[in-house]
């Protein structure tokens, strides 16, 4: 008589962790930019510094996530290998996407 093994549904959350951070970066950069420009029509170097700071912080978080996922994948039992590999690949893709998404902040006229 058994209720089954302990569910490992939290692994599925790892799938979305990387891109959840990307979403956060997107919202913070887009929303932050909109708010900064609404309150200060010119948008000087301070505003750009704030946005670049947000961008860098999230990139660092993503790099940390990638290292953690890589370690988890190497140490995973057989039945969890697939999902941990996909989680890792997605974390890397999300970091690349965050770099790409932030390029406008680094290169264009602010407001």
């Amino acid at each position: 008589m058994t209720a089954g093994p302990r569910p490992t549904n939290s692994e599925a959350a790892g799938l979305v962790a990387g891109f959840a951070l990307w979403s956060l970066a997107f919202l913070a950069l887009y929303g932050g930019h909109g708010t900064l420009c609404a309150f200060e029509a010119e948008g000087g170097t301070d505003a750009r510094a704030v946005l670049l700071g947000i961008w860098t912080t999230i990139l660092i978080a993503q790099a940390a996530l990638i290292l953690w996922f890589a370690r988890r994948w190497r140490a995973s039992p057989a039945e969890l290998r697939f999902i941990r590999l996909v989680s890792l690949v997605l974390a890397i893709a999300a970091m690349a996407a965050t770099v790409w998404t932030g390029l406008p902040v680094a290169t264009l006229t602010l407001c």
């Binding site: 930019h33 996407a97 790409w100 998404t101 390029l103 406008p104 264009l108 602010l110």
Partner: peptide, 15 residues
């Protein structure tokens, strides 16, 4: 909408 805002979405649309 300001060009930089548009650029976010242009970049994402390409990505």
């Amino acid at each position: 909408i300001p060009h930089l805002s548009l650029a976010f979405f242009s970049a994402a649309s390409l990505l």
